[in-house]
C-alpha cells in the first residue's frame, strides 16, 4: 500500500520527456553533443540560444522526426500525443478551415463534430473570417496562428513550437502567446524555441540555453536569466556578442 502511494507521487513528478546522451552527427560533423534534459510535465520550457546552436535540430530529435546518432529520447506521456509547430509553417494546399479539418480527420473525427471543432479553433486563432481562404495565401502571422491552432486541435499532451513569433508584429505575437498559454492552462506541456528574452520572461517556467550544440544553462527561468553560470549564458542575457570557445 505504501509502495503504491510512493509510486504515484513519483509518477506525478515524472518528466513527460527525457533525453539522455543525445548526440546528432551528420557528414562527420557533430551538431549536438550529448544533450541530457528533462521536460517537466505541465510546464513551459523555453529553448534559447544563438542561430545555429542546434535548437531546431534538438526539437526534431525530441519530437522523433530524426533518429539521434546516439542517446535516446524517452516519452512518458500516453499514446503519441505530441504536436509541433515548425519554424516555417507547412500549410496544406487547401483552405484555412480544411487545414484544421485535416488534422481532425487524422484523429479519426468526422462529420458535424469535426466541423464544429474546426470552426471553434479557427475562431480561437482569430481567423474566423478567413475560413475559405487558401491557407498559403494567408499572411505570415495568420499562417503561424493557423499552424498553432492546427497543432492544438489534436489536443496534444506536449506541444513543440519553433520560434512561432520570430517574424510577427506585437499583436500577432500576443495572439500566439494567448493560444499557447490557454493550452498550458488546460495542462498541455509546452516546449518553445525563442530568441526573445522579453517573451521568455512572459512565458517561461524553465529555460534550456544551448550553445554550439551543448546545454550551457538549464533551470528555472529566474535562475538562468538572473545568474547564468556559463560565460556564453552571461553574454546572452546581457545582450553581448559571445565569440569565446564552445563550452
Amino acid at each position: 500500500m505504501r509502495d503504491m502511494v510512493i509510486e504515484s507521487t513519483q509518477t506525478c513528478a515524472m518528466p513527460i520527456l527525457t533525453a539522455t546522451g543525445l548526440r546528432f552527427a551528420t557528414g562527420g560533423q557533430a551538431l549536438l553533443h550529448g544533450i541530457d534534459i528533462e521536460i517537466a510535465r505541465g510546464r513551459r520550457t523555453l529553448i534559447m540560444g544563438a542561430n545555429g546552436a542546434g535548437k531546431s535540430l534538438l526539437l526534431r530529435l525530441l519530437h522523433g522526426l530524426l533518429p539521434p546518432s546516439s542517446g535516446e529520447v524517452i516519452w512518458q506521456g500516453a499514446g503519441r500525443a505530441q504536436a509541433m509547430v515548425f519554424q516555417r509553417p507547412v500549410m496544406l494546399r487547401r483552405s484555412a478551415l480544411a487545414n484544421l479539418r485535416f488534422a481532425l480527420k487524422v484523429q479519426g473525427l468526422w462529420g458535424r463534430a469535426r466541423e464544429a471543432r474546426a470552426r471553434e479553433a479557427l475562431d480561437m486563432a482569430h481567423l474566423g473570417d478567413k475560413a475559405h481562404q487558401p491557407a498559403r495565401l494567408l499572411s505570415g502571422g495568420e499562417q503561424q496562428r493557423l499552424a498553432v491552432a492546427r497543432a492544438l486541435i489534436c489536443e496534444p499532451e506536449l506541444l513543440f513550437l519553433d520560434e512561432p513569433t520570430s517574424s510577427l508584429d506585437p499583436a500577432s505575437t500576443q495572439m500566439i502567446e494567448d493560444l499557447v498559454n490557454t493550452a498550458h492552462k488546460r495542462g498541455v506541456t509546452i516546449v518553445m524555441v525563442t530568441h526573445d528574452i522579453g517573451q521568455a520572461r512572459r512565458m517561461g517556467d524553465e529555460v534550456i540555453f544551448l550553445h554550439a550544440g551543448r546545454v550551457a544553462e538549464r533551470g528555472p527561468l529566474d535562475q538562468v536569466l538572473g545568474s547564468p553560470r556559463s560565460e556564453a549564458g552571461r553574454a546572452w542575457v546581457q545582450g553581448r556578442l559571445y565569440t569565446g570557445p564552445a563550452i
Binding site: H63, G64, L65, A83, F86, L92, C154
Partner: peptide, 11 residues
Amino acid sequence: EYTEQFASFGL
C-alpha cells in the same frame, strides 16, 4: 515539403 509535417501528424 510535407514530410516532417506528416510525420508530426503521425499519418
